[in-house]
């Protein structure tokens, strides 16, 4: 368990760092996939097996695919990429700046009562129990989300349409 957790979190963080540092958007996106899949593994480790699948299907399978598709579709030339001469320095400074914040939050959280997170049995996090919970207690937010998705769909179509003239 611990070993798997460490390996997965290493990949998640490595992917994230790679994403921020990469110059080419394609490299960024590929690093992000690594993070996403590692996170999916962490979800599975927390016995959220349905979320594990959803993360892979929706995030890795659809969102990032769409993303890479758009990057390839735009076929951005090296010249059209923004010039970021001080990129690494600003990233480093940003990290330094965020360190105290991290420290404070983690310090605050450290005092939460510790409890081992284990793989749960009897259907916790599986599709059936999740579905039951979703459609019994969270029906309204679920519907709202679906309306949001619809709006996003329409919005995307409106944006993507060829302009007249």
């Amino acid at each position: 368990m611990d070993m798997i957790f460490l390996i997965l979190s290493f990949f998640a963080i490595a992917g994230a760092v790679g994403m921020v540092l990469a110059h080419q958007p394609v490299h960024s996106a590929l690093s992000l996939i690594l993070t996403i899949i590692a996170l999916a593994g962490l979800f599975a480790l927390l016995s959220a097996s349905f979320l594990f699948m959803v993360q892979i299907i929706v995030y890795a399978g659809a969102v990032i695919t769409l993303f890479i598709f758009i990057i390839m579709f735009l076929n951005v030339k090296e010249a059209n990429l923004p010039k970021e001469p001080n990129k690494n320095i600003t990233i480093f400074l940003g990290f330094i700046g965020l360190l105290p914040l991290n420290f404070l939050i983690l310090k605050a959280l450290y005092h939460m009562p510790s409890k081992a997170l284990v793989l749960s049995q009897n259907g916790f996090g599986e599709i059936k129990s999740l579905g039951m919970e979703l459609f019994e207690k969270w029906l309204l937010p679920f519907e709202l989300i679906s309306i949001l998705l619809l709006v996003a769909l329409i919005g995307a179509v409106v944006f993507g349409r060829k302009e007249e003239g």
């Binding site: 349905f50 979320l51 969102v63 996090g125 999740l130 996003a152 769909l153």
Partner: peptide, 17 residues
């Protein structure tokens, strides 16, 4: 977990837009 799932759904919507 349900909230997490909704976040993923929102992320998908956000991606499209």
């Amino acid at each position: 977990q349900i909230i997490a799932m909704m976040v993923i759904a929102i992320a998908a919507a956000e991606a499209a837009l």
